[in-house]
Every structure is written in structure tokens, then in C-alpha cells.
Amino acid sequence: MARKPLINAPAPHTAGALGTAAVMRQVLYTTLPGLATLVWLFGAGPLLNVLWAALVALAAEALMLRLRGRPLALHLSDGSALVTGVLLGLSLPPGSPWWLILIGSGFAIMVAKQLYGGLGMNPFNPAMVGYVVLLVSFPLAMTRWAEPGQPFSLSHSLSLFLDLPGADGFSGATPLDTFRTWVGNAPLLAEQPILHGHVAGAGWEWVNLAFLAGGLYLLARRVIGWRIPVGVLLGLAAPAVVANLVDPLRFAGPLFHLFSGATMLGAFFIATDPVSASTTPRGRLIYALLIGVLVWVIRSFGGYPDALAFAVLLLNLAVPFIDYYTRPTAYGHRSKRQ
């Protein structure tokens, strides 16, 4: 009897997981509210950033896979390069020129990810490596944010993006910048409208709320674990509460910190990158708490207004150490190891 042979496969025979590609897709969808808010506040700039960064990331990934002789379709379809590009695009200021994004996104994929061996092998968060490379190399371009709530027209955004001569220069400050500028001066702090939104800094509070919404959805769908977002937010809020109670003029309050800058994007979308995060359950909490604390420290005492990229990269560095010391005690070894 010529029958098709039965499948011979190792146990378990069912899979309960979504699959890497599905996870990445969910992450992409849940960044949409944040992206929409950015577009509403700043015009088409952020959208151009995201699209271009994603395109560059995919192209860079394809190029590197080809050079490394890896199957293109299998690895491109996991969506990880797309997520890296989108997250980097979301972090860049509106009005970033195309070449800046090209450098950042290309570096993120080619050096920070593929040169280390591709997905799963990179010790550092690729998007944040790209961001920091740009921040260190082009500090002016990278800290030039527009005034939120006064979106540029599409043509203005485009000319900035294409870096056309004669495109208007612009300057604006984020709430974090403004606070840093006037820190310690009560009357001037009170005069800054950008610091007085509904929850925190005007405009930026909405960006953070949108990312929070997306993040909570991811959490509810169990695409990400609770430990990292909760850890980051707690690590940031706790010192902020204490310092703010001690000296409210020098230290901003916890709500301001939580809803300014890249906090929510970082807590739910960036620090949760599983590849470069700690792998043990306890280690993840420690990793995230330290990211939060470091963000607060750099924001309060460091030279940069926001700090998420640095905090994440520094803790990436500490991951092997954290993993080693947070190894869970295996079943049956409790009495032996104590």
C-alpha cells in the first residue's frame, strides 16, 4: 500500500506561541497610536522618518543577509529589521534629513545587528545603537525638535527631509529641554507653557499616553511581559518622587518624568527588546529597574536632556552579569545551593 509516510516529529506536537513574525507584527501595530500622535503634533516629519528608516533597515538587512549567505525570505519575514527601523524612526526628531536616517538605520542593522550574527545574537539594542551614533555624531540635528502642536506643512516636512537648500530652519524645545534650561528658577519655570500640559509637558504627554495605550495592549495580549515596563516606570518614578519631595525646583515630579520624552516608548517598546535584555525572570526586573533609575539620573544630572538610549545600552552591557547572578534555583537544588 503506497501511503504517505506519517509525520515523525519530536514532542511537543502543538505550539502555543504566536511565532516571531506575529510578535513583531503586533509590536508594529501597537506603535501606530504613538506615531499618529506624533504626526498630529509635528506634521508629516515623523511619518517620513519611520517609513524611510524602515525601508533602509529592510534594505540593509537584505544586503547583509545576502553577504552572509543566509536565506533572505526566512529571515526578512521575521519582521525584526522592520521593528528596528520603525523604533529608530519614532525616536528621531521631525525634520531629520534623509541621510541622517540612512546612517542611523543602516548602522543599526549592519553593525549593531548583523555583524554580531543577526537576530538573537546582538548584545545591544540595534535601534538604540543607531540613535546614539547619530546623537553623538550630529548632536545639533538630533536635538532640534519643533514646537509641538504647530505641525509643519507637508511641503515643509518634505523639504526638510530632502535637505533642500532654503528649507527653513526651526527651533523648538522639548519639555525636558525646557526644564533643564530653567531648572531651579521658580518664576521662569512657571512661565513656560510647554511644562504645563494636562498631565505633564504639553503635547508630549499625548505622545506618551498613546505609546502607553499601545504598550498596555501588548501587555494584555502577553506579547511582552510585565516585568520590563513596570520595572522601567518604577525605577524612574521612585527616585523622582523622593527627589521632587526634597527639592521640587531642582527635580521634576514623577508624572513629568513618566510622560515626557521617550519614557513610554522606551518602557514598552525599546527596553522590552528580548534579544538584548536580561533573560531570567528576576534579572529582567532588575535590568528594567536600573534602566529607569539611570534615565532619571541622566535626566537630572547628566549632559543630555533625555537618556533612554544611554540607559538601555548601559544595561545591555550589564546583562551577562545580571543573568549570571539571577539564575533561578532549579527544582531539587534548593537545599544544595543554600
Binding site: 516571531t20 525584526s80 538573537g120 545574537m121 525572570p281 529582567r284 533561578p328
Partner: peptide, 22 residues
């Protein structure tokens, strides 16, 4: 079974391991 892909170190396996292994 779908094709095996690269481990992304998500750690879900450690969360569900009843023997608390990694």
C-alpha cells in the same frame, strides 16, 4: 511543524519551566 527560527532570547521558556531551569 513550522521551520525553526533564531532564538530571540525572549525568556518565555524560563517563565513556563516547571523545574525553574533556563
Amino acid at each position: 511543524p513550522p521551520p525553526e527560527q533564531a532564538c530571540i532570547r525572549c525568556g518565555d521558556c524560563a517563565t513556563v519551566c516547571p523545574a525553574s531551569l533556563l
